[in-house]
């Protein structure tokens, strides 16, 4: 039975949505903000941070489901977005991230916002990445080049370029930099060259060094040339024709 719409109850309020609507979107329609670290409306659901878990009652039992991944495909669901259980789980998830990124500002701010303090007993690791995967997913799904990915698995899992080496398919667009919630991908420009990299010192991993294009009119650097090439190819024109936003 493939009805086009379904009605459900969230925190006591009723709402009707189109079939296959994500639960987190249904919550949003009711102005209920579900916290999340890995969800991005422009990307396919990933469901790894587990913050967005809500309690779902389908009649027989109550279970926790990640609302960013759960598609609404039947009637009669009852959802609770806040409870002792959910709050306790989120507290622990933050504590686990605090242990992993024990000096990372964005994580510390997030913890402070939720009123969670670190647990001393846990092993600390000075990491800056929470492995939300938004950078990898954006590069693959939106930019379409897939220049970065994961390396290894489990506690050794990291986001890297292949062989931690420069990857020519990267167009230095900076999408990964903009999308990262912990600002752990660096984008710098010096002497007309944009560098996308991670880490510093010995561990430094450069993904791409791209020459910047100069504006035909004012001569300032404004766009990495690989990005210009992508657009020029799609439009069938010469990339040097582009001018910077101020001159347009």
């Amino acid at each position: 039975m493939n009805a086009k719409e379904h009605t459900l109850t969230i925190d006591g309020r009723s709402i009707t949505v189109k079939r296959d609507t994500l639960l987190i979107e249904a919550c949003k329609k009711l102005c209920i903000e579900v916290p999340t670290l890995c969800h991005n409306e422009n990307l396919k659901p990933y469901g790894v941070c587990r913050f967005c878990q809500v309690e779902l009652n389908e009649g027989k039992r109550t279970r926790l489901v990640p609302s960013c991944v759960y598609e609404i495909r039947k009637d009669g669901l009852t959802v609770t977005t806040d409870s002792e259980r959910i709050r306790n789980n989120r507290k622990w998830l933050i504590q686990l991230l605090l242990a992993r990124c024990d000096r990372q500002k964005d994580v510390l701010d997030f913890a402070a916002k939720h009123g969670v303090a670190p647990v001393e007993r846990l092993t600390k690791k000075n990491d800056d990445c929470i492995l939300c995967g938004q950078c990898v997913r954006a590069c693959s799904e939106i930019v379409g080049v897939g220049a970065i990915g994961y390396e290894r698995r489990g506690e050794m899992r990291e986001v890297t370029s292949p062989y931690r080496d420069k990857n020519p398919v990267c167009i230095a667009c900076g999408t990964c930099v903009y999308v990262c919630p912990t600002h752990c991908i660096a984008m710098t420009e010096e002497k007309g060259v944009r560098t996308i990299s991670r880490y510093a010192g010995e561990k430094k991993m450069v993904v791409r060094e791209a020459k910047m294009l100069t504006c035909g009119k004012c001569g300032n650097y404004f766009l990495p040339s690989p990005v210009a090439e992508v657009f020029a190819k799609k439009m069938g024109i010469d990339p040097t024709v582009f001018t910077c936003p101020s001159c347009r």
Partner: peptide, 13 residues
Amino acid sequence: CGKCVPCREGVMQ
């Protein structure tokens, strides 16, 4: 696999 926080971080702790 290391994808989700509770398993990757929790079981490791």
